[in-house]
Design a protein around this nucleic acid. Structure first.
Lengths: 122, 122
DNA sequence: CGGGATCCAGTAGGATACTG
DNA sequence: CAGTATCCTACTGGATCCCG
């Protein structure tokens, strides 16, 4: 069986880049992580995340739904209830994200330090 | 000793988000991967990546240098020669990126399919 | 050769007000 | 409660021309 090659191919680079820029926007990861605990309704999600506007939460959830990462369930009651849940695809993303999170925790202070020193020199 | 917890903390989410959006721009990953083979000069890098403008290559390299991910070496000859090399920090990033690349390869077709179907329904 | 300086279009992010 | 509609700002990506 074939081993998965390292990402040296141009198409691979673009694929990685596409995924990183897709999930690398300001709110996507925070929404995904908030949904890891289980399904959440809109305003509960909003409260948990904190300083996100309802506009940006709506947009982020819609994009995640479009990509098939979250599933949206509407109960036609009054008041309406809408539940958002991670799909299997969305949960599977949390694995590579966990790796990236470890790297971020380990190296982000160094990066910030590098930036500070660079800016002082220029 | 303490196990590294999953990225549920708010500060962690933001750290992940920051790294993902930082390296998730259009060219950063392609430059990093191009430099994995070894140090490269500016125009060699430009030729290898292909359709990047010299403007965007300059910006991307400068940001990577500022973060301490690449090291820039100038030989004051005529014509001037400038070599770019990945630092240890830059190379260490390639590990979580490899994980992300595998996920991208495995799931990007599904995502594109999901989008297509979503757009047809709306 | 390896950039810097400008200018420009498109998109992401956000504040606010309104609605079924 | 769960959005939509509008308007605005800032940043990203890019094209072009210039420079030592």
């Amino acid at each position: 069986m074939k081993m998965t090659p390292p990402p040296r191919d141009r198409a691979d680079c673009r694929a990685v880049s596409e995924v990183l820029s897709r999930v690398g926007d300001k709110w996507t990861m925070q929404v995904v992580v908030a949904l890891l605990d289980g399904p959440q309704r809109f305003n509960a999600l909003k409260r948990q995340i904190g300083d996100i506007s309802q506009q940006m939460l709506t947009r982020t959830l819609k994009t995640l739904e479009r990509d098939g990462m979250v599933e949206r369930t509407v109960c036609a009651t009054t008041p309406p209830q809408v539940e958002y849940a991670l799909s299997a695809l969305g949960r599977s993303l949390s694995e590579p994200v966990r790796q990236m999170a470890q790297w971020a925790r380990a190296h982000l202070p160094i990066i910030h330090d590098n930036r500070r020193r660079y800016d002082e020199r220029h």
